[in-house]
């Protein structure tokens, strides 16, 4: 049902740490594997061994080069995973003509009920983040489910009741939790590290937050403070050996 709930009981989502993501694509493939086998239609691939391979993925990792405005500073590279942000004001839901797209009232997860979806693609048009992909084989819209079939799944050990991408991320750059709880791990990370919204001007109020990269290449500018640490004890090997003797005597 395409009307958004007035409020959701919880706000489950992800924090993605751009300072830590090494761009390994582990989350991409783990997501592909889990969601091919589980919720709804498998994520299909066209021309998987051919000239123009292309398939459905619910999570993709981009990379961006950032050139600081200060000319002397060096360019940086930021790996940037992106999946559905489970927006509070999800435009993908309200455009859906069939009610297939909906936002769950319990936890705010935005889902597609695949048996209702006609594959019109409108929700993907409405999503600014490119978080929805129409599966070419199944003809229905696929999107991140926040691994709804994992997070409450009593057939999984409790520690595994979290999204596949979070469980697999080798660098620990992905965190899952409830943003409506200010004390949750994700809320605290967001507060401490200045977690941000993507495209805030689109008014979607994303639940997922991104932690910005920490400032880089600061060392040289600290040389003033660091320099005394390199105060010479000797200028050449003779001086050094003298220093060595003096120092060793003291030990």
């Amino acid at each position: 049902m395409t009307r958004l709930p007035d409020r959701t009981e919880r706000q489950l989502g992800l924090v993605i740490d751009l300072d830590t993501c090494v761009g390994c694509h582990a989350c991409v493939i783990s997501c592909k594997g889990w969601n091919t086998e589980n919720y709804g239609a498998p994520l299909s691939d066209q021309q998987p061994y051919g000239a123009d391979p292309s398939g459905t993925f619910l999570n993709r990792v981009h990379s961006y080069e950032v050139t600081p405005l200060v000319e002397s500073a060096m360019a940086q590279l930021v790996h940037f995973p992106k999946s559905c942000l489970h927006c509070e004001d999800a435009p993908c839901v309200t455009v859906c003509p069939t009610g297939a797209s909906y936002k769950r009232v319990e936890d705010g997860i935005v889902l597609v009920n695949e048996t209702d979806c006609i594959g019109c693609g409108l929700c993907a048009w409405a999503c600014p983040y490119g978080a929805r992909e129409l599966d070419a084989a199944a003809g229905v819209m696929k999107k991140c489910t926040l691994c709804i079939d994992r997070i409450y799944n009593e057939n999984l050990p409790e520690e595994d009741r979290l999204p596949a991408c979070v469980r697999t991320c080798p660098a620990g750059a992905r965190h899952f939790g409830d943003f409506s709880d200010p004390d949750s791990h994700v809320s605290r990370l967001t507060a401490e590290r200045g977690g941000m919204d993507l495209m805030p001007e689109q008014g979607t109020k994303p639940v997922n937050k991104y932690l910005p990269p920490r400032p880089k290449d600061q060392l040289e500018s600290q040389l003033g403070v660091l320099a005394p640490l390199l105060a010479p004890v000797a200028e050449d090997s003779r001086g050094f050996l003298g220093w060595l003797d003096r120092t060793l005597d003291k030990i």
């Binding site: 694509h25 582990a26 783990s30 589980n38 595994d160 469980r167 697999t168 080798p170």
Partner: peptide, 20 residues
């Protein structure tokens, strides 16, 4: 489906893209 083994000394549950 293939996932990392949490008890394993090497990867402690995580798995890279190739592994998945």
């Amino acid at each position: 489906y293939i996932e990392g083994n949490r008890d394993h000394p090497v990867n402690k549950g995580v798995l890279c893209a190739k592994g998945s």
